[in-house]
Nucleic acid binder design. Sequence first.
DNA 1: ATCAATGCATGAGTAAAATTAATGGTTTGT
DNA 2: ACAAACCATTAATTTTACTCATGCATTGAT
Lengths: 302, 302
Amino acid sequence: MLERIHLSVIQAVDQQGSLTAAAKQLHLTQSALSHSIRKLEQNLGIAIWLREGRRLRLTQAGEHLLNLANRVLPQLADAESKLQQMAQGERGTLRVGMECHPCYQWLLKIVAPFLAQWPDVDVDVKQKFQFGGVGALLDYEIDLLVTPDPFHSEGLHFVPVFDYEQVLVVPHQHALAQRKYLQADDLADQTLLTYPVSKDRLDIYTQFLNPAGVTPKRHKTSETTDIMLQMVASGRGVAALPRWLAEEYSARLPLTVLRLGRNGIAKQIYLGTRESDKDIEYLAAFIDLANAYEQASIDEQA
Amino acid sequence: MLERIHLSVIQAVDQQGSLTAAAKQLHLTQSALSHSIRKLEQNLGIAIWLREGRRLRLTQAGEHLLNLANRVLPQLADAESKLQQMAQGERGTLRVGMECHPCYQWLLKIVAPFLAQWPDVDVDVKQKFQFGGVGALLDYEIDLLVTPDPFHSEGLHFVPVFDYEQVLVVPHQHALAQRKYLQADDLADQTLLTYPVSKDRLDIYTQFLNPAGVTPKRHKTSETTDIMLQMVASGRGVAALPRWLAEEYSARLPLTVLRLGRNGIAKQIYLGTRESDKDIEYLAAFIDLANAYEQASIDEQA
DNA sequence: ATCAATGCATGAGTAAAATTAATGGTTTGT
DNA sequence: ACAAACCATTAATTTTACTCATGCATTGAT
């Protein structure tokens, strides 16, 4: 009944001062506008303008409508332009899901340049999912999953973005600190510090302790890497971490980094997306940035 | 491009859960909605829903639109219902112009019951007009003019709403306090207090002093009746007021009320409106209230 | 596994609405 | 007095919106 065009006409007439000029602005004929508003006035049962000679003067009702137009039309125009940008993959919200606790540090390194490169794309990071990371991806709860466990499924696509070695961190003066590498039973009398997630999602258990049937003396958890390593440094336990993260901290704290097993525990982190999202430019760009970062790390080592 | 109907559809689908149900709510067929949104999606170049089996799931773009719909649609609906009320004369703003300073007290007595009777009508009072009260009425600056000078003009209509006598107020112990009535030259050695308006709008001049060629010794002004009469009571001057107002104050202050001339100065207050507004119910109602109040005053005197 | 129910999409036809063109009347300013 | 500017109106046309009929996919029950 009260349509966008009506508000546009009211606004244009106010700006231009006459129906004829307003019609020009709206790329319509004066007749079209005259008909259009006449119908509106009939439907509402109230005059919007008083016709005084060849001048239109807003009535109280008209003033209200002008006010409404000035409030509402910009919102519609704004929404349209944003949708336009979304359509071209320039704008949106990239919802990232994390299934890999220590990867948060890594993620931040990717997010920073991403935000700079895509000023109209927001990034949300979520860490809790009702039906797991893959479920969140399939349920459109997130758009990108950072995970060490690529769960190949219909409609999903995973790409590895970096390889790392899972290592053990102990304080400098620790009994094991001089060893070349560790065996599972070395941890039998140790206190192990991990993130607070179930054991089947901790590689130190699934790939190291469980196969050898070993259980550490105690198991404590910590939400944050910082606190965890403060505790390791003060002799309260040992922790398993990606090597790159462990080495970053060992520059600041008295920590020694040890290989787990003769060949070490090799891990990969994958980024998972929905195949249907393959045309979203900023999503592809994020993955590119992740790959570029990995490549930069490799180059650095060489 | 992005029309009200589109927002309505998005909102209805969200509320009802399906296109079919939404169509029912909007009194349209499912087909109509399907066509309508298909076109919108094509125009915007972006999907609003993902079709998953027979379920529709909002995309990010769709979420934005839903958000917009929930913000904008109520505003449109609200505006429509208010216009509806305005159309029926139940709602609006009654802009009252005053060309009669002391009438403000009287106006308040009419406004109070009016506001109670017309809860959706606001009252604005204005006292300054670029081209005088009649000009303000003709320019739609105000809708109702309270004036002692009915200036009959094409398209305007004036009705008298009350008669009063303009009197002089002096302090009890004043030299003139015992007089039955005053003559113009009695004021020649007095200080006259008036509202700050030009002399040709002060009846004491136009109808009393000027005809006799008398000028008071001094002329001071005061914006408010209260201050003015405080000054009169303390012997700083004399003031001309409507009798009803003077008597109201003389109950609280040591003031004596004196007739101006043998027969007194008779005045009327008129309410002026545009003839084209004669169908505005609340405007007629206001005038009725004013008349009723006048009638009640007369009855009281009897 | 089959079947009915439910839901969305689509094509064609139709009804409705918007728009234009043409024109006339009024006002405004020169 | 005249030309220019402006709005209203009628009639014709184009465009858009809507419905009907139908098809296909999914869902859930037996």
